[in-house]
Every structure is written in C-alpha cells, then in structure tokens.
Design a binder for these strands. Structure first.
Lengths: 211, 211
DNA sequence: TCGTGCCTTGACCAATTGGTCAAAAGCCTG
DNA sequence: CAGGCTTTTGACCAATTGGTCAAGGCACGA
C-alpha cells in the first residue's frame, strides 16, 4: 500500500486526493482549534470530514502530521501582513495598516488564531523550530525597521518588540477569547468597535507628536 | 467509605486532608495549565502530587471536580484587582494602578493565567455560568464607572469594555504566550520592559489631554 | 470491457485513561 | 494498647484512542 503521502511518491495528486486532503484539513482545523492537540480525536476529525478513520490515516501519516500541516500553513497566512510592512512607506500609516489587517484576520480566521494560541499555550512543542526559523528572523527585521523609524523621529519612542507583542495581543484577543467576549459585550458589532478602539490606541501611542 | 468531599460531610478537614488537597491542587495547576483539560491525565497529576491515583480520587470526586475547583479559586484571585478600582480615586491613577497590578499578576501567576486561557479558548465549557454570574456583573459595574469618568472629562474618550479587554489582552499575553516571547525577546528583563511599555501605552490612551 | 492500481473500510489491536473496590495500613483516642 | 476512624493502595475494569491490515470497491486508461 503506497501512501500518497510517502515522501518518494512524487506523483502529482489526483483530484480525489486534493479534495479529500482539503476536507480533512478543514475538519481538523475545526476540531484542533477548540479541543487542542490532545483533546482532539481522529474519530471527531473523521466524522467532521465525512470520511472513515482509516481513510484519514490513508491521507496523513498520523494525527501529528495533520496538526503540523495545519500549523505550518497557518503560520504563513499569519505572518504575511507583517512581511508587507514597507520600509519605504510612511511609518504611522504602515503600522496602522498592519494593525487593521490583523484585526481583519482575527475576524476572518478565528479558528487559525485559536489553533496557534493552543499550540503556544502548551509551550509550542510541535512548533518551536518553526518559530526560531520563520518567526524570529522576521520579527528581528521588522523590529529593526521600527527602531530606525523611532530614531528618525517619525514615530514616538517605543520598544519595537513590545509594540509588536501588544499589537498581536490586542488583535488576537478578540478571536482567542471569543467565548468571554460573547458573555461580556453587549450585542452589536463588537468587531467594528474593536477596530476603532485598537486603532485609536495605537495611533495615540505612535503619533510622533501628540495630536 | 465516606469521602471527605461528600457534601454532607461537614466535618472540619483534618490536617492530612488540608495538606493533601493543597498538594493535589498545586500539582493539578501545573498539569492543567500546560496540557489543558483533556490533555491532562490523573496519572500525571498523581505523580506530580506524589500520591497514588486512587488516593487523588479519595480527595476529589473526579478529574472535573479538581479542574472546577482550580478554576473557581483562580477566578477570585484574578478579579480581585478589578474590584479594587476605586470610584473615589483619581481616574488615570486608578487605572494605571490596576494595569500595573495586572502585569504583576501575570508575572507572579502565569500558570493561573494559562489555566484560564485554556478554558476560554475551548469555549469555557466548564465555566460559562461562573462568567455570567461572577465576571459579567463586575465588568458591567466597572465599565459604567469608567464611562462616568469619561463623561466628566477626567479620561480621554474611550469605550470602557474595549479598554478592559485591551488591558487584559496586553497583560495576560506575557504569561499565556510565554513560549513565543522566550523565542522572540532578547535575554534580559522582559517583564520590566513590558511593564514600562504597557504603562506608556495606556497613559497615552487615557490621559484627558495629550501631554 | 477489463484489469490494474487507487481508494475505502470493517474488524481488530495494544496502550492509555478515568474510575472502582476491597483490603491493608496508619493514626488517634479512650 | 485496643478499637474504630481515616487514609492509602494494588488489582482490576470498561471505554476510548491512535493506529494496522487485509480484503473489497471503484475509476479509468488501454
């Protein structure tokens, strides 16, 4: 039985393979993002995907392989906006655009945000290398850029890495703690207010001179 | 076999009971806070507590009972600083004191923060009632207080609930995402810088007139 | 249409897990 | 130091879980 996932099976994937792998990942995202890695079961994933458990194992080497695939894919999507931070742009506008995009992403991909949060909460056991190789260099680069902007007086003085942390914290919070938000916030467009609040917050923090 | 935990056993707990229940809760906090509810096992907890598994079950009705006990206890500690927000105080100073205390707590009780985060991430299945009864009224009350302060022009205009969210988000982030912070931050006193950063951030956001 | 190789699954397995129980071991008090 | 309680545990159990496997179903090119 040659698994389609075996490394040396370089065949291009059939239509069925493409469809089913996508189904599985979609279902697994649903399950992992709320249950965490250990909390999720292959049976849950199989049922959510509408496939039998052995069939899931036909497409992926195992539970962990599914999780890792999901994590890596998410990581790319997640970092893309930070990549876009443009050294040639106007500092405040660049950062506000980044922040706005991050809020959008929390609204649009809450499952991905929670998947990630779960992994980090548990000490990033399946992702530490990826953090070192993928995330750290990018953050170092952008932190340096922000530091330059500050030196040039085009942003209020701010510790770049902590700025980035607080942007992530405030934006992802709305996705990760949705269950809490649902209880505390009055009905209505939480997201619009959230966007306005976060934007005000960072505008005031970063404006080179107080408005 | 009369369990000491049975409701109608109103006996005051023996010295051994007090000691062992404390041990178990301490061990369980270690385990639950990194593994989440489903990820944690009674064996892990038993081993961490230095007790046998059946002995754990002698002191608590079951896995869930331990988790709930921990959650409820944590919730109190967690909310105490918000309770202290004083209507008679100077608004900006009151809020900054609250924020400082929250940073302290994330530094001092990261496990509690993660325990809580895990529960909320998973949709707060074992805590929703407690959120409604305990958390919501308090937040409503303090949000009203902040709204009053804003009306009186003693704080910059801000949506109170979102302010509270962003305080929680920024402060707890340092505990909950510690694994990520460890990778991204250069060695040194992350916490001191974090405190300074967060304080600046909210000072600028809240100061009734720009400094 | 036929067969070859891709896809699917029922049955099964070993390990883990939350929990039970009866008996043994401490421990305290009269 | 005896008797009755509290505490502790080894042995056990049923359910769940990740994973295997051989056999059957199916699609599609020749």
């Amino acid at each position: 039985m040659n698994r389609p996932t075996e490394p040396y099976t370089a065949r291009k994937p059939s239509r069925i393979q493409t469809r089913n792998r996508k189904r599985i990942l979609e279902a697994a995202l649903d399950v992992f993002s709320v249950e965490g890695y250990r909390g999720a079961t292959l049976d849950q994933i199989a049922q959510a995907a509408g496939l039998s458990k052995p069939n899931i194992l036909y497409y992926f080497e195992g539970k962990e392989a599914i999780h890792v695939t999901l994590l890596n894919h998410t990581m790319e999507t997640w970092l893309e906006p930070l990549h876009r931070l443009d050294p040639a742009g106007e500092p405040l506008e660049e950062l506000l655009r980044y922040i706005r995009r991050k809020v959008e992403m929390s609204r649009e991909y809450p499952r991905e945000s929670r998947l990630f949060a779960n992994e980090i909460l548990q000490g990033a056991p399946r992702m530490r290398p990826h953090l070192e190789d993928g995330l750290k260099p990018l953050v170092d680069e952008k932190a340096a850029l922000i530091a330059r902007w500050v030196e040039q007086g085009r942003l209020a003085p701010v510790e770049p890495r902590h700025l980035i942390m607080s942007i992530w914290a405030t934006t992802q919070h709305y996705a990760d703690f949705e269950a809490q938000i649902a209880v505390l916030m009055p009905e209505g467009d939480v997201w619009d207010d959230a966007l306005a609040h976060v934007e005000t917050m960072f505008r005031k923090l970063l404006a080179p001179r107080p408005d």
